[in-house]
Nucleic acid binder design. Structure first.
Lengths: 231, 231
DNA sequence: TTATCTATACCGACTGGTCTGTTCGCTACG
DNA sequence: CGTAGCGAACAGACCAGTCGGTATAGATAA
């Protein structure tokens, strides 16, 4: 089957993505990528005219996957509750669950990786990253608007900023998890965002939690009552 | 004055730091650094045996500066209130003010930059980053412990995770501000952390804010009544 | 059925340039 | 005059990208 190059193309992109998350874009040399992918220079430059073209293809692939992922989770959440606040909390909870399921390779984000080497990329590549960010923000902000119609926030907040906080927490959590080599850190930070939204909007606030023992060993992370099908 | 090389050393480090935040470590070549610093290869390798040694020196310098910065802000906060919760909120507010004062060069964090190129650095350099993170976390967590002794949280939280959220928000906000080219984004996210802590712990919750006009134009960011001396 | 042709998919040696790091020499102070 | 501080040329490794060539699959045609 010398006729289908899509597998090779995918192998290149997968190898490159993993390498970039480990070493950054500049240090992920074409030689290193092709070694990891098990192919040669010829194959690489057959599929991508330049290394920059690979970068663009990578962010575009991630952008589409992430957008689709968000829609999936939002739709699941919307089918599980009619209340906008609950929908948002469930959606965040779904992301939390997914991140809690992660194990070995400490996650990372290509967008952040590229942004910290921003000068290396052309405007189009960076534009994709910016577009992903604004799309995510607007999608969440839309939900937050609906929430605000129903529940006045206990503190003055801008919807846009509050929506961005979800992005910010995710990106920051990736960094923390890499530093600590603890994939669980990401889920824990999603949980903080859920807490924040709940405290801001939820009409009936939970009773204060009685003080536990001296160290914070026995905190109960109550599970969401939503099971996500393995895809 | 051929006898004092410390100025040259500082020039190298400053140029390198700025370049690294723009392009990443690998792309910040020694040639680019010395051009920016206005010196030559000889001077560079007189002060730093290798490029890796420069990396270590940079994170160490930042680590010391950040630790001192945190102590300053904590002490200022402690002198302004006797209540641990207020102290923490004031301390966060001080960071928020400083970030709000930033303008042109969208801020960035050397730690995050290094972490996304982690494989390039030796264990000692990464260890410094990890140490900065744990130190910050423990310092904030200590304060949070004192807060919890007085005010039971409205939701179950781990002090460590909650302390890490401050770090996570800061790191994530740097990324957001770089993507949006908006230095103000960092301050806005610090504010979210203040909100979260207030909602979690403050015994008298503010009244729900009445819904404003359709767009979120007129949010009042009430100023802290604390002025920070220009250092 | 078999010979020929063409486009796709890939190989691997090679090139010009850039990278980190070395070497040596100059100069100005103590 | 000795050495701290630095300039300038150089060395060897590595980089992205090129190019002539190969293998295979299907279309065409005899």
């Amino acid at each position: 089957m010398a006729r289908d190059g899509s597998a090779t193309r995918k192998a290149i992109m997968d190898a490159a993505q993993a390498l970039i998350l480990e070493t950054g874009f500049s240090a992920a040399s074409v030689d290193a990528v092709i070694t990891r992918a098990g192919i040669t220079k010829g194959a690489f430059f057959y599929h991508f005219k330049t290394k920059a073209e690979l970068a663009l293809a990578l962010v575009q692939r991630d952008a589409e996957a992430d957008a689709a992922h968000l829609e999936t989770n939002l739709q699941r959440a919307e089918s599980l509750s009619r209340d906008p606040l609950q929908q948002l909390l469930i959606c965040i909870g779904l992301y939390e669950e997914e991140m809690a399921r992660l194990t070995a390779p400490y996650p990372g984000c290509l967008y952040a990786s590229f942004i910290y080497e921003a000068q290396l990329f052309d405007a189009a590549t960076i534009a994709v990253v910016r577009q992903v960010f604004t799309h995510w923000t607007q999608r969440i902000a839309g939900k937050l608007e609906a929430v605000m119609q129903l529940y006045p926030p206990r503190l003055p907040v801008e919807v846009k900023t509050l929506a961005e906080t979800s992005l910010v927490l995710a990106e920051g959590a990736f960094i923390l998890s890499k530093v600590q080599r603890d994939p669980g850190a990401v889920a824990a930070q999603w949980r903080q965002y859920r807490n924040y939204l709940e405290l801001l909007f939820s009409p009936q606030l939970p009773d204060p939690v009685p003080r536990r023992g001296n160290d914070a060993a026995g905190v109960t992370h109550d599970k969401l009552d939503v099971s996500v099908p393995a895809k």
